[in-house]
């Protein structure tokens, strides 16, 4: 697998505070990579190092296999969490300026901006001053500025904050579109449901260290509990009596024909196949699935575990 970005053993110290401790991440190409972690864990510092805003004390960053350097700046698009625009400057003029700073020529920037403004139907904002825009409107402009120079690596820090659900969805579609077009996206957020929806990989940073990294479903499976949901047509009372030493029934929901039950295995050696075999004897199974934990649960669990370890 090719990696768009690799960090190796990054360490960064601010006076007495160790902001990043031996952090190595691998971001696969053309994927959406969720960078998670509690406030103050070091995510922003890591992002700033990737953006070459600050330099690490130790460790290396590789961009497409090369040690990262200033020539990569134009290949990265960054939407910071704390973002703003010059309030007194006109929207179009400002977008042009910021795109030119990224290395685009004035003509290319103008052409690209016109296209995006049309796409978002915001052409009428061009000559408005930024202070006349609402927060959500300004965010849209910032998003355009971030992606306009066709970066191969995009870093979004809390991109959905300040957006209403309609515009948040619009933005999500745009991010997925960018991925389909081959861009790699690092996505930092506290909103775990959006992580589940769009991320392919995740890394969790807690207290300056990386505590978890991997493909999202793998991560969720690893932290899965022994809870299954089964929908079947048959006799509930037999199940209740015959197998009660192997599992506990958490929830029963009866429909006209079907029964949906939630069970938790008491014996860790049992596999899904074992459960399935047992249930086949009692009726027609129309649905059988193991509960995958929500990313939120994984997050809380891992952070809690590592905190108790370090304390």
């Amino acid at each position: 697998m090719k990696h768009a970005l690799i960090t190796e053993n990054i360490e960064k110290r601010f006076a007495n505070h160790l902001a990043l401790d031996d952090v190595s991440i691998q971001v696969p190409e053309a994927s959406i990579y969720g960078l998670l972690g509690p406030n103050g864990a070091g995510k922003t510092t890591l992002i700033r190092i990737i953006n070459q805003i600050t330099a690490p004390d130790k460790g290396k960053v590789y961009f497409n296999g090369e040690p990262i350097s200033s020539k990569h700046i134009s290949l990265i698009g960054y939407l910071p969490e704390e973002r703003g625009l010059y309030k007194k400057m006109k929207v179009g003029e400002q977008a042009l300026y910021l795109c030119q700073l990224k290395g685009l020529s004035r003509q290319d920037a103008l052409k690209g901006l016109k296209k995006w403004f049309e796409k978002f139907e915001i052409q009428s904002w061009w000559d408005k001053k930024v202070e006349e825009l609402s927060k959500g409107m300004a965010q849209k402009v910032q998003f355009i500025i971030t992606v306009l120079h066709n970066p191969t690596l995009l870093i979004f820090d809390e991109p959905f904050s300040g957006f209403d659900p309609i515009n948040a969805n619009l933005l999500k579609q745009e991010i997925l579109e960018l991925k389909r077009n081959g861009a790699t996206i690092i996505f930092s957020t506290h909103n775990m449901s959006s992580v589940e929806e769009i991320c392919d990989y995740v890394a969790l940073i807690n207290r300056s260290r990386k505590v978890l990294e991997g493909e999202i479903n793998e991560v969720r499976t690893n932290y899965a509990s022994n809870i299954y949901e089964i929908q079947f047509e048959g006799f509930l009372n037999i199940i209740e009596t015959s197998l009660s030493h192997e599992y506990k029934i958490l929830k029963v929901e009866k429909n006209l024909k079907d029964t949906i039950i939630e069970i938790e295995l008491l014996n860790n050696n049992l596999t899904s196949n074992d459960i399935l075999k047992r249930f086949l004897e009692f009726g027609n199974i129309s649905m059988f699935r193991r509960y995958l934990p929500k990313m939120e649960d994984v997050f809380i669990k891992v952070v809690g575990e590592t905190n108790s370890l370090t304390e």
Binding site: N51, Q52, I53, I73, I76, Y78, L79, P80, E82, R83, G84, L85, Y86, K87, L98, L101, K102, G103, Q142, I145
Partner: peptide, 18 residues
């Protein structure tokens, strides 16, 4: 101060050196 309070500075320093 304007660049700092309007929070545009981080966008700019991702493109140019401080």
């Amino acid at each position: 101060i304007e660049e700092k309070t309007s929070r545009i500075v981080e966008v700019i320093v991702s493109s140019v050196k401080p």
